[in-house]
Design a protein around this nucleic acid. Structure first.
Length: 417
RNA sequence: GGAGAGAUGGCAGAGCGGACGAUUGCGUCGGUCUUGAAAACCGUUGAACCCGCAAGGGUUCCGGGGGUUCGAAUCCCCCUCUCUCCGCCA
């Protein structure tokens, strides 16, 4: 949620919100409704003060005077009811409009749409297409079974079996061990949350059609543990000295993938259910930009440590999404497609999400909003398929990345079952 | 799933229509005393928003949302959560 006060007082801030793609007329509209709302609020509070005073007066008054005073207070009350009606209308309208204003992008973010990204680093060679693409390879090695999964659950589901499972748990363990060194506390989160939490985390109403709903219980399956981690310190004050607070959420993630018919239909690339380790940071507002660089560094250590060729891009302002002030995508080279595809991303939401959650930092001079950041540590499916292609040997077997071997019981090569 | 009890400031716990944003205790922070500390004593101690350069003023908040009333922590309705007993269960 945007900082309304700043939006009306800070021209540069307003300009950057507009630069992110929102119509300048809708910003004007928000400001107009805001002004009207504050006007009505002042009126209401004035009347309430009078009305409160009148009521107290009645309590103190001599019984013989009560009748008259109650009548006078009744008069005040009907005026108050009228003004409160207007206040409700204006605050309802304002609350709705406020959600349409995105978090302004940081100065370092390139302007423009999806194609306007800036490449930050490119690491590793970009190999030729392997013998099998990741979809074919999973079937060839007998470690991914989509045919039977589809028969059971429908498209975009998969059984992961055998050595792929050993690889999955090795990946998770190795990832957790790497980020634990940076003070991330591992968390297994609930995967079902209430509607309210989806709204507070910013996924409803915008991404509602991407989320699985359990109607009988009015619960929703999370698409990322970010939802559950963002809600952890709702309505809380964290001591300045305890910051940053860093969590590594591990959960299965569920996505309907509505509107992606025919896209990435092979293998594990785009599935309805996958496991992911997600980093989430509650940061001192003065240090969140350093925190974002830390997330990026960790992501490079993880993807680089697995010996996958990759590049890092800064996503352009128009492609950022409402809450992010800046976002890095790390894209790994997918040999079968001869292009880079996203495997992780990390964002600084500044105070945009913390404002709605009311997550604050306790300081001597008051409680100020925290900054929140999130980033993928390891999206298991995407990493697995990148390993399948980039570490594929000429005969179609797969060499397990060195760093994972100790975590995979010494497994070195995956060969057909 | 069935039956009952409850949710109040950092914690404990009173208040059950009128001076209550809330008695009190513990804890917090500051002070007196002390070489220092403890004890004792004195004081202090919630948040969000609006107006204001500021000083300051105002509104709202007793789990959440509605209602009754001139007036609600207190009465009524709905929701959420917690606890106890029974049943079921990894």
């Amino acid at each position: 949620m945007i900082d309304l006060k700043r939006l009306r007082e800070d021209d540069a801030y307003r300009q950057r919100a507009i630069a992110k793609g929102v119509e300048s007329s809708s910003v004007d509209r928000v400001l107009a409704v805001d002004a009207e709302h504050r006007q009505t609020l002042a009126e209401t509070e004035q009347l309430r003060a009078e009305s409160n005073a009148a009521s107290k007066e009645i309590g103190r008054a001599d019984p013989s005077e009560r009748e008259a005073k109650i009548a006078a207070a009744g008069e005040l009350k009907s005026r108050l009811t009228e003004v409160e009606g207007r206040l409700e209308t204006s605050s309802g309208e304002l609350n709705e409009l406020v959600l349409t204003i995105p978090n302004p992008a940081h100065d370092s973010v390139p302007e423009g749409g999806e194609e306007a990204f800036r490449v930050e680093t490119v690491v590793g060679d970009t190999p030729e297409a392997p013998k099998y693409n990741h979809g074919e390879l999973g079937e060839h090695l007998g470690i991914v079974d989509t045919a039977r999964a589809v028969r059971m659950s429908g498209s975009r589901f998969a059984y992961i079996l055998g050595d792929a499972v050993r690889l999955q748990f090795a990946l998770v363990q190795w990832t957790l061990s790497k980020i634990a060194a940076h003070g991330f506390i591992p968390v297994v989160t609930p995967v079902l949350v209430r509607e309210e939490m989806m709204e507070l985390a910013g996924f409803f109403p915008t991404d509602r059609n991407q989320v699985y709903a359990l109607e009988a219980d009015e619960l929703y399956l999370i698409g990322t543990s970010e939802v559950a981690l963002a809600g952890m310190h709702r309505e809380e004050r964290i001591d300045e000295a305890d910051l940053p607070v860093r969590y590594a959420g591990y959960s299965s993630c569920f996505r309907r993938e509505a509107g992606t018919y025919g896209k990435d239909t092979s293998g594990l690339f785009r599935v309805h259910q996958f496991d992911k380790v997600e980093m989430f940071c509650y940061s001192h507002p003065d240090r969140s930009w350093d925190e974002l660089e830390l997330l990026r560094t960790i992501q490079e250590e993880i993807v680089g440590g697995l010996e996958l060729p990759y590049r890092v891009i800064t996503v352009a302002s128009g492609d950022l999404g409402a809450p992010a002030a800046k976002k890095y995508d790390l894209e790994a080279w997918l040999p079968s497609e001869q292009r880079y595809r996203e495997v992780t991303s990390c964002s600084n939401y500044t105070d945009f999400s913390a404002r709605r959650m009311n997550s604050r930092m306790k300081t001597d001079s008051g409680n100020v909003l925290l900054h929140t950041l999130n980033g993928t540590a390891c999206a298991v499916g995407r990493i697995l398929l990148n390993i399948f292609e980039n570490h594929q040997l000429p005969d179609g077997s797969v060499s397990v990345p060195e760093v994972l071997r100790p975590f995979a019981g010494g497994l070195e090569v995956i060969t057909p079952r």
